[in-house]
Write a protein that binds this DNA or RNA. Structure first.
Lengths: 125, 125
DNA sequence: GCTGTTGTATTATTCGAATAATACAATCGA
DNA sequence: TCGATTGTATTATTCGAATAATACAACAGC
């Protein structure tokens, strides 16, 4: 069914994450026009209302803005976007470290563990 | 309100994670009796039904078992628990690496990034 | 002016999570 | 035996997420 999402988190939040990522990676450039709500809903295979909800939240956060009935655009606030580029991986990493500490892993062994996992302990696409 | 949980994931799943962690860390030793449903519900400040749901799932998974009306216990299957000890951090790490790659971070820079974050880039309790 | 596209709003329905309030069955201990 | 404790089951209600089906307002292009 939902090819894009997992079930443990609301879809609209997962959409927000994906759009933020696209903005951070420059796939959605500053000032660039994004697809209409209905199209994005179709692409993500979700209900237009769900898509609308996600985009409205992103607008609240300042990452998107609406130009009347003309369409929706990515913010031109490049500082906000630069900030996103650094804060996204930072948050993910801070979260990861917290989880590992919670697991009982000593702080000074975590990065070694990551090294090991990357080099061959696990198979990562 | 919910001092223990965040809102982006169902509480009963978060409880499951916490119990698994406690088992892996040995805080709940193999064969050890755990608190009654009602007590655990009170401790976690959730509804007894929610607690019951989590414990039932953990039982399905084989980590707990019920002795009639006597109480609930942690499995004596130490191999299962040993497996948990390694698989928990492995899964967390695999997930983390996938997220970082998704962010566009080169594979060979991830562990350095973690090192940096641990040593002082971030403040971690 | 008309039509299509855009964002937005509204109402209703379904579903699962969570809570509440009980009730029941089985065992243990006094 | 009696009562407390245990796990379990049942029914109802509330809430948010998600979907469905529309409807409306505003602008662009013909």
């Amino acid at each position: 069914m939902t090819t894009f999402f997992n079930s443990t988190q609301p879809i609209y939040l997962q959409i927000i994450s994906r759009v933020l990522l696209a903005i951070a990676k420059g796939e959605l450039p500053p000032g660039g026009k994004i697809s209409p709500v209905r199209d994005m809903a179709a692409n993500f295979k979700v209900n237009p209302n769900t898509m609308q909800k996600s985009l409205a939240k992103l607008e609240e956060m300042g990452y998107l803005y609406t130009e009347g009935t003309n369409g929706r655009y990515v913010t031109k606030n490049v500082e906000l976007i630069e900030n996103l580029k650094t804060s996204l991986p930072a948050e993910i990493t801070a979260n990861y470290i917290a989880e590992m500490l919670d697991c009982g892993m000593p702080r000074d062994e975590i990065s070694d563990y990551v090294s090991y996992a990357i080099k061959g302990g696990e198979k990562n696409g």
